[in-house]
């Protein structure tokens, strides 16, 4: 383990899943990221917090390959995302990334099971195999009984569980969560937090962007605080669960 000048620990290179070096992102005159450096080790759960407009979501988009930096490099699982074209980025996401969102982003026209199976089917997995794996995941997440229900008829917590199941479908190296409890009531939020903790405990690497200190402290082992497009502070959190 390396130690930074401010005393925070730095992950070893051998275990690095995410590595951002000098990442800048500008939207016109506005700087969303301003020379951001960040590393995340395998199995870590990292929470990113900060005021609105500090660049949290932009950071997440960079890591997911949803957006490109103006300058700097983004490496995930040892892969430099810079040279990848749109096709390459799509394949990268398919292989390495799972994403959950504040508003779930489920497809209204598909029932829960098919929403989850979709991620595997895009890789060429047969419908039967994909549905079998999707059902296993829904079962593990406690919503198998709702597999045939369309998103509009699911509760917020159920929708987010289905979204988590979909994110895990392709066994991603990194699970990205953007305000995963932001649209949920407190009980559903608790359930989702427990779920994330459980996933991390079985070795799933997590990067969570949130405004909610409770979520950050409960689910993450390291907290990255951002301001003005940079990492303002990092600290290791005590496990609270």
């Amino acid at each position: 383990m390396n130690t930074d000048h401010d005393g925070t620990s730095r992950p070893d290179d051998a275990q690095v899943v995410v590595e951002l070096t000098g990442v800048h992102k500008e939207f016109g005159d506005a700087k969303a990221l301003d020379g951001l450096d960040l590393r995340i080790r395998a199995g870590e759960a990292v929470a990113v917090m900060g005021p609105s407009g500090c660049g949290k979501s932009t950071l997440l988009n960079m890591v997911a390959g949803l957006d490109r930096p103006t300058s700097g490099t983004v490496r995930v699982q040892g892969q430099d995302l810079g040279p990848l074209n749109e096709n390459g980025l799509a394949l990268f996401r398919r292989r390495h990334i799972g994403m959950i969102f504040q508003f779930f982003n489920l497809i209204d026209d598909l029932p829960a099971l098919d929403n989850v199976a979709l991620a595997a089917q895009l890789t060429g997995t047969t419908a039967r195999q994909a549905r079998r794996r999707a059902l296993e995941l829904l079962d593990e997440l406690g919503v198998a009984h709702r597999k045939d229900v369309y998103p509009a008829a699911l509760s917020g917590g159920e929708r987010q569980r289905v979204a988590v199941a979909r994110a895990l479908m392709n066994r991603p190296a990194l699970l990205l969560a953007d305000e995963p409890t932001g649209a949920l009531d407190s009980r559903s939020g608790e359930q989702v937090m427990d779920l994330l903790i459980d996933l991390n405990q079985i070795g799933q690497t997590l990067l969570i962007v949130t405004h909610d200190p409770a979520l950050a402290t409960r689910c993450a082992g390291r907290l990255v605080e951002m301001a003005d497009g940079r990492v303002a502070r990092e600290r290791i959190l005590e496990a609270s669960s």
Binding site: E86, R93, F101, N105, L106
Partner: peptide, 16 residues
């Protein structure tokens, strides 16, 4: 738009 964004986020390629 949202569905398409989601599909792309889970790995649907531009060609797909």
């Amino acid at each position: 738009r949202r569905d398409l964004g989601m599909l792309k986020s889970i790995g649907m390629t531009p060609r797909q």
